[in-house]
């Protein structure tokens, strides 16, 4: 058996919001909040930074546009030059639609793959599911979990801390692997 973290329940969304801010201020880094619905202001309360996924999308989109435009330029001007309806070999206007399409396609790939990578998905099991309490997060539970690999994690102190900010049903998350 291995200790993976600690989880506690809170009264309602408002209490969860203030508790999250307390956890953040106490210096914990590896913690998460679980609720049946999104809570406005939670990102700020948890001290989360903006997701870098936008930059991945931007980079991928720029790459897609470059590939689209470059491929067409190469094909029509050097690899297989062909006069089409009397237009110049390098007719950039004709390239725009495919350039735009690849810009969007690569951007979408960037969004999906970037989101999966940043969330460390796909992942079949997460140790938090050893917890009894976690099932309530999809019903009526407002929970905070602190992972054991956090530098400040200590069974005694973390338990006392969670209790001090209003946590109840505090549970040590333990399981194999």
């Amino acid at each position: 058996m291995k200790t993976h973290g600690m989880i506690a329940a809170f009264e309602n969304p408002a209490v969860l919001l203030t508790a999250a801010a307390r956890v953040r201020d106490a210096g914990y880094q590896h913690f998460d909040c679980h609720s049946p619905f999104p809570i406005h202001g939670m990102d700020d309360a948890m001290g989360l930074k903006r997701s870098p996924v936008g930059y991945i999308v931007g980079g991928m989109a720029a790459l897609g546009a470059t590939i689209g435009f470059g491929l067409q330029t190469w094909v029509t001007t050097s690899a297989y030059p062909l006069v089409i309806s009397g237009k110049p070999m390098f007719s950039w206007q004709a390239y725009i639609i495919i350039t735009f399409a690849l810009f969007v396609l690569f951007g979408a790939f960037g969004a999906v793959i970037g989101m999966f990578r940043l969330n460390r998905l796909p992942r079949l099991h997460h140790p938090i599911f050893y917890s009894e309490l976690i099932a309530k997060a999809s019903d009526d539970g407002f929970l905070i979990s602190i992972e054991a690999d956090d530098a400040r994690f200590d069974e005694e102190q973390t338990r006392a801390f969670l209790a001090s900010i209003g946590g109840t049903n505090i549970e040590l998350v333990r399981g194999e692997g």
Partner: peptide, 12 residues
């Protein structure tokens, strides 16, 4: 604006 331009450019 682009759609309008490219269609007209294509048909010539």
């Amino acid at each position: 604006g682009g759609s309008q331009y490219y269609l007209i450019w294509y048909a010539n």
